[in-house]
Design a protein around this nucleic acid. Structure first.
Lengths: 211, 211
DNA sequence: GACCTTCTCACCTACGTGTTAAGC
DNA sequence: TCGCTTAACACGTAGGTGAGAAGG
């Protein structure tokens, strides 16, 4: 079977093909605390962003690249006593569709020459907007459930029909409507330029200390 | 021959295929005054924008869409006494390359379903940047020369190899490094949201008059 | 009350404008 | 001087943040 799932590092490989998730250290910091991603009505971008580098494709073949947010397990979670605890099984209506990268389809040479960014994808809990989910790039998630990022690369050749799949366990996160763990909030503020507004107000322990 | 050039209205046709340039009235207003487009080192966007609607394509065939800025004539110009006057022939090094629309290639159905926008294309006089011109969407022009917009639609079918070409004479403009005709400046300010900063300061004849 | 969601807000980033003064 | 170009600038548009109050 030419469908493969490998799980070990930030760099995933399938045959000759490898996919590398950018900002590896940042992803790990978040994972270590239990990453949370905000979901809301209009859709919220992910942070850290999903940005990839690919190697090992045939430069002359054509591929489409997809991102999918899949369930990390079938549990529902609560955040109590500074911990995420599973409470029962997942809620019904948990569906996922892959998002096709807007540059698809394109040559292996193209995908390897450029960074592949899914940073504009938005996570939402709005079922209405999700009708055209895979068109406008919104992904419907359930709050208080755990997810992870999967990248799929499909060979669009007329004869071949293989699809490679790359699972990033370090990308696992809890979908939330408001941050639960304050350490996650602070890590977002420290690293996301758009959250700069809150950097000095909250995080300098002493205003006049060295740097 | 399946290569056609038709010149008459904002809506161009080639066989069954027609291309319509949006903001027709605005384009005409600018043309009437002698449109000017700023070019600079980092690249400046065009205003009005080049946005198109297409009809008459085969929904199931695949096409690539291109924009090209071609010389409107082979003269060099001066702006004197509130008029554009040709002075000698064009400077050397006047090359033009088509910009491929980033959604290319795509189905006729796709192109007809969506607006086709080239609004992010940047005009520049920087020869350094232009090395990758058709990749990053910068177009190299010579200042004080006259240009016009051409749209090309290429059928990417394996057997067919036809390319349709649509010339928009109403889009003709002078490339400049600074506006020459103050009426053009004012028309830009009045219609481009990004120039709103200058709307009240310059254009109300009397600050305390009605409205 | 406890838990989770929704909405508005101030405050940022990012970048598209013409203006203006200086450069050549 | 004159004609044209360059660079810094103020001031908009557009949109991404978490905070915090209000809602369910």
């Amino acid at each position: 079977d030419d469908k493969m799932v490998l799980k070990s590092e930030m760099k995933r490989s399938s045959g000759n093909v490898s996919v590398c998730l950018h900002d590896e250290n940042l992803w790990r910091q978040f994972m270590h605390l239990g990453t949370e991603m905000i979901i809301n009505k209009t859709g919220r971008r992910m942070f850290p962003h999903v940005v990839l580098t690919v190697h090992g494709l045939d430069p002359n073949s054509f591929y489409s690249v997809f991102m999918e947010i899949i369930p990390a397990d079938n549990r529902r979670y609560k955040y109590v006593h500074n911990q995420w605890l599973p409470v029962g099984t997942e809620d019904p209506g948990r569906v996922s569709h892959p998002i096709i990268h807007p540059d698809s389809p394109n040559s292996g040479a193209f995908w390897q020459r450029n960074k592949i960014s899914f940073s504009k994808v938005r996570l939402t809990n709005n079922k209405e907007w999700n009708v055209q989910e895979n068109i406008d790039g919104n992904i419907l998630l359930l709050s208080m459930h755990k997810y992870m990022v999967v990248i799929k690369i499909k060979n669009e050749g007329l004869t071949s029909n293989d699809e490679m799949q790359f699972v990033f366990h370090e990308s696992s996160f809890f979908a939330v409507t408001a941050y639960q763990n304050n350490q996650i909030t602070q890590l977002k503020i420290q690293n996301n330029p758009f959250a700069k507004a809150f950097r000095e107000a909250k995080c300098s322990p002493s205003y006049d200390s060295n740097n």
